[in-house]
Amino acid sequence: MLRMNNVSSGYGATTILHDVSLEVKKGEVVTIVGGNGAGKTTTLRTLSGLIDTSAGSITFKDEDITHLPAHQVVNRGITLIPEARQLFPEMTVLENIQMGAYRPAAKSRYEQRLEEVLALFPRVKERLHQQAESLSGGEQQMVAIARGMMACPELLIFDEPSLGLAPIVVSQVFDVVKKIAESGTTVLIVEQNVQQTLKVADRAYVIENGRIVMDGQAQELMGNDHIRKAYLGI
């Protein structure tokens, strides 16, 4: 479904990603794990068109999307739920969710989709008319996920959804990720919480210093010595 072929990218003259290749197949949950500054977020920003690719190519459903700007990538069916939630702080929760359904393909299915999404987040449903910034961190993350789902994406990308959340909320977030995957949406997830992520993922890539250093089935990687030492602390 999604392929990155030998992609390099970065900010200005600084190259951060070197020759990254990865693939996400339809219906899979794929994760990219790695430490701080390894290039996880840059990979997602490149994929979603927020920064341009300097070498290599990206295809989605066999169409080239390498140099598309971010808003056109969304229209193709790829939605990124950015790190640190990034809600529209001075809009209500409902307005935030409406913005999620901005792309034409999502607008026509708005009513039905809203019902489906709110069923998944009862807490969000109670707070629809509150200002987004008045919510707790965990609730804001749920709104961010709900907003992302409203676009009816075929590929939903999560950037560190558990960052800065209380442990109980973290497990709720992973439950939601699992439910989204079970409902048939393809998921790419980037996390520092490697243990939890490998449990929900089918396959994983390990990124270090802007290069993919390892990939394989999530289960296998959990038993890998390097992974256990570097990321699981065992």
């Binding site: 979603s48 700007p69 808003h71 529209f88 702080p89 809009m91 913005m99 999620g100 901005y102």
Partner: peptide, 13 residues
């Protein structure tokens, strides 16, 4: 309110 997130909604900023 958030230029980055707006782009990710599909808004042509």
């Amino acid at each position: 309110q958030n230029r980055n997130a707006a782009q990710l909604m599909g808004i042509n900023v």
